[in-house]
Design a protein around this nucleic acid. Structure first.
Length: 875
RNA sequence: GCCCCCGUGGCGGAACUGGUAGACGCGCCUGACUCAAAAUCAGGUUGCCGCAAGGUAGUGCCCGUUCGAGUCGGGCCGGGGGCACCA
């Protein structure tokens, strides 16, 4: 045994089989131990797993195995985010049915995940495309509908002409569909919406309770919800314009009202459209704005443009003061009222607009130390805090006081029986449109009847199943053109009616799967008892790309499910961790084409790294390190890695090199290092198996010398690794394991070199240290750890062993070595008893030669002693 | 344009609340074993001066606070990410 190399290829499947046969990762809902729910974002079954998955699931598995060893009942499930457009695209291209394409992919990827040796409870596996899952999603939809959380409304939608589908605003990137990249068109459609805005305020304020989320994600969500407090102000018009006698604007800066020099309307504001009726310049301008639309946004950014409508608005505080009303390209119709008053001195966009059209620029807020008479605005608006000026009764007030004063006065002034202004809280967040004109999604369980209108599908008829006989040869929705599927009888009146042919956004599927995992076979969407026991997810791990949408929708869903009696909590994810990407350097051939890592050969010549194309020997230029992608050909296939090096090596390396929230660079050398360590730990374990006391030997009463040192080192590492895993600092945990391996290897070599038979306390210490080391490595390298555990003479599985118990007193040293500085510069070390008093330490320090040399004949001015830390002598 | 994050050896990165800068890994160099290679083992590896002991500079740049700054504050420079022309 001793001289054999560890053979991962043979050992890994063997241990996986044992784990599976004994069902040790199956989790029960009625286990008395404290619960711990660790979840990684479930994958889309695209075909094969990629390195990002390996990293993500390796992290989750470390947490799961660690918490299990710490005595928790751990839920660690896996499933498939299985609906979505790629399946339909594959169907259209390769004549494979989306269902078989999806399930084939699931089978492949499941086998890949299994070869990673993850401690998953596969009995809870979910696929969102399974009618057994989406049946409950349809029930949730209907319950939400009943509870007033679903709404059907006409709305202008982003139409993706390539995917033939509607996109949410958040799915439009630079005016293009986020998947297809096609230019998005505007269309009017009747859509189903989840009323997420009902929870705007709560979703925002509860972010403050998510203290185990990354600050970055919390900030992104806050910005996305976008709360702003301001004032709605009515501006009377000097003449009626098409029946309108006023225009309402929203502002967060009512304090700057006396600096107003114009009013601006969005291009599709009703008043703008009215004004366009008999003014071709306005009409042309509006058309120009519509034509350029969102796609031209970036180009338009530079220039603020507008057209004077000729209409004049009356200043709310001065009936004689008239402001020109413009239609402007920089005013958004979807936000606020679609109209603003322009205050050029204190808004950059307004300033640029005013300069272009020679409108007045009057500062009304000036820096506290500036003279209002001479303060002028140049190319930049003044956005800082300051004191009000040129503002009549507001002069001298602070900005908040002025805001308050304006609000108070205008609220109390009525014109046409209504107050001139009212306070308003405005959110950027919009309702979540979920209708998709696609086949491969969860059908919306609604029937449209001529007589009865919108009729929910009765619960007993759920699920509304997708028909399987569909074609993908034409664009558009196969459900809509299916010959029979949509024709049904109205559940209410029995007359012929038709089904809703839209399916749900796939973000719906992933908004509650974490709840379903707690009772995957329940015949209601959730088993409330199980959900109550397991939720919230204690540690959720996934990519930063889901920082906004998926997480926000899940937070909404959890609240909506609470309101409809399916759950008992608001926040689904107590701890969130967002991992970095896996990146790899890129290789370019002379002709500019990319080469894959598998095709190149890397060698060292005169200390220089030389990369060549293996087949032809041609030189390769090493390009920047980038996210692994097919187009750059810098991907590494997990299957190759797993079959060459084994799962433990792949997992180890994925966790070792970089902090988990940062990108990790995949390098061949790094993997080699990891695989070397596998062998080192295996050799050390076998060495220890010979040197150490047999398993089960009674603990000696006393330890001294090397035995004590071995124990101290082992327990110090134990303390650090435990803390590092708990804080998800896997790279540090691994560095600690390396260190422990080094010191134990040295200690073993020293003991052997001494030539005496190792017995007594040292033999025991070696066993203890070895067993600690193996268990510390186990969450990261579970297969090797099992093999080592067996080699140490155990019949049990290390996967089921408890975490080593820390003996804290071993961490306390009797003497401590303090660094000694003179004037902040390290000059020496001093070793003193742990509880030495300051005078004692000072005396010892001043007696040191380097200190005496630095001080010369002078007496020290001060001696600063930081307990247990450092001594600094100031001369 | 706005907001956020990050700059530490040849490389990835350590350094808890201000307290020995460079843990650990990779790479490289030297040596041992070997006919040779791989594997393994031992030693070295921030720059500069020095045989060495040691000294000296050093965490993107400048300034400040402090007995003491990679860490805190101000101002720059560079890189990355997010976004909303959001009034």
């Amino acid at each position: 045994m001793k001289n054999e190399r560890y053979n991962a290829r043979e050992a890994e499947p063997r241990w996986q089989k044992i784990w599976e046969e004994r069902g040790i990762f199956k989790t029960r809902n009625d286990d008395p131990r404290p619960k711990y729910y660790v979840l990684e974002m479930f994958p889309y079954p695209s075909g094969r797993i990629h390195m990002g998955h390996v990293r993500n699931y390796a992290m989750g598995d470390v947490v799961a195995r660690y918490m299990r060893a710490k005595g928790h009942n751990v839920l660690h499930p896996m499933g498939w985010d299985a609906f979505g457009l790629p399946a339909e695209n594959a169907a259209a291209q390769n004549k494979i049915h989306p269902k078989s394409w999806t399930y084939d992919n699931i089978a492949t990827m499941k086998a890949q995940l299994k070869s990673m040796g993850l401690s998953l409870d596969w009995s809870r596996e979910i696929a969102t495309c399974d009618p057994a899952y989406y049946k409950h999603q349809q029930k949730l939809f209907l319950d939400f509908l009943k509870a007033g959380l679903v709404e059907r409304k006409m709305s202008k939608v982003n139409w993706d002409p390539v995917d033939q589908t509607v996109l949410a605003n958040e799915q439009v990137i630079d005016g293009r569909g986020w998947r297809s990249g096609a230019l998005v068109e505007q269309r009017e459609l009747t859509q189903w919406f989840f009323k997420i805005t009902k929870f705007s305020d709560e979703l925002l304020s509860a972010i403050n309770t998510l203290d185990r989320w990354p600050d970055k994600v919390r900030l992104m969500q806050k910005n996305w919800i976008g709360k702003s407090e301001g004032l709605l102000i009515r501006f009377m018009l000097s003449q009626n314009a098409g029946g309108a006698s006023e225009v309402e604007v929203f502002t967060t800066r009512p304090d700057t009202l006396f600096g107003a020099s114009f009013v601006a309307l969005a291009p599709d504001h009703p008043l703008a459209l009215e004004a366009a009726k008999n003014n071709s310049a306005i009409k042309d301008f509006i058309e120009e704005c519509n034509r350029t639309g969102t796609a031209q946004e970036a180009i338009d950014k530079a220039e603020k443009k507008g057209v004077d409508t000729g209409i004049r608005a009356v200043h709310p505080f001065d009936l004689k003061w008239q402001l020109p009303v413009y239609v402007a390209n920089f005013v958004l119709s979807a936000y606020g009222t679609g109209a603003v008053f322009g205050c050029p001195a204190h808004d950059q966009r307004d300033l640029e607009f005013a300069r272009k059209y020679k409108l007045p620029v009057k500062p009304v807020v000036v820096p506290p130390d500036a003279d209002p008479k001479t303060f002028e605005i140049g190319d930049e608006a003044y956005l800082e805090d300051g004191v009000l000026a040129n503002s009549r009764f507001l002069d001298g007030l602070s900005v908040p006081a002025a805001k308050e004063e304006v609000a108070k006065r205008l609220e109390n002034e009525t014109r046409g029986n209504r107050p001139v202004a009212k306070r308003q809280i405005q959110f950027r967040l919009r309702d979540w449109g979920i209708s998709r004109q696609r086949y491969w999604g969860c059908p919306i369980p609604i029937i449209h009847c001529e007589k009865c209108g919108v009729v929910p599908v009765p619960d007993k008829d759920l699920p509304v199943q997708l028909p399987e006989d569909v074609t993908f040869d034409k664009p558009g929705n196969p459900l809509d053109r299916h010959p029979t599927w949509k024709h049904v009888k109205c559940p209410s009146c029995g007359e012929p009616a038709r089904r809703e042919t839209d399916t749900m956004d796939t973000f719906v599927d992933s908004s509650w799967y974490f709840l379903r995992f707690t009772a995957p076979d329940a015949n209601t969407p959730t088993d409330r008892k199980a959900a109550k026991y397991w939720m919230p997810v204690d540690q959720y791990i996934g990519g930063i790309e889901h920082a906004i949408l998926h997480l926000l929708y899940s937070r909404f869903f959890t609240r909506a499910m609470k309101e409809t009696g399916h759950a008992d909590l608001d926040e689904p994810f107590k701890g969130l961790f967002t991992q970095g990407m896996v990146v790899h350097e890129t290789y370019r051939k002379a002709d500019g084409s990319y080469a894959s890592p598998a095709e190149v050969k890397i060698s060292m010549e005169d200390g220089e790294r030389v990369v060549t194309f293996e087949k032809t020997g041609e030189k390769i230029e090493v390009g920047p390190i980038e996210k692994m992608s097919k187009s750059k050909r810098n991907t590494v296939d997990p299957d190759d890695i797993l079959s060459t090096y084994g799962a433990d090596t792949a997992r180890w390396f994925m966790l070792s090199d970089s902090p988990p929230d940062r990108d990790v660079i995949w390098t061949e050398e790094g993997v080699q290092g990891a695989t070397r360590f596998v062998q080192r730990l295996w050799r050390l374990t076998n060495e220890l198996a010979e040197l150490a006391a047999p398993a089960g030997t009674a603990k000696p009463a006393q330890f001294s010398g090397d035995a004590l040192n071995v124990r101290k080192a082992a327990h110090a590492v134990l303390a650090n690794v435990s803390e590092d895993i708990e804080r998800l600092r896997f790279n540090r945990a691994i560095a600690q394991v390396y260190q422990a391996t080094n010191s134990l290897t040295d200690a073993a070599a020293k003991a052997k070199a001494a030539g005496k038979k190792i017995a007594g306390d040292l033999a025991y210490a070696f066993r203890e240290a070895g067993e600690i080391l193996v268990r510390l490595a186990a969450p990261m390298m579970p297969h090797l750890a099992e093999e080592c555990w067996a080699a140490l003479g155990h019949k049990t599985l290390v996967s089921q062993e408890a975490w080593p118990v820390l003996e804290r007193e071993l961490l306390i040293e009797e003497t401590i070595t303090l660094p000694v500085q003179v004037n902040g510069r390290k000059r020496a070390d001093v070793t003193v008893p742990r509880n030495a008093g300051n005078p004692e330490i000072e005396a010892a320090v001043l007696a040191l030669d380097p200190v005496k040399r630095e001080l010369g004949n002078r007496a020290p001015k001060r001696v600063i002693i930081v307990p247990q830390r450092i001594v600094n002598v100031v001369s």
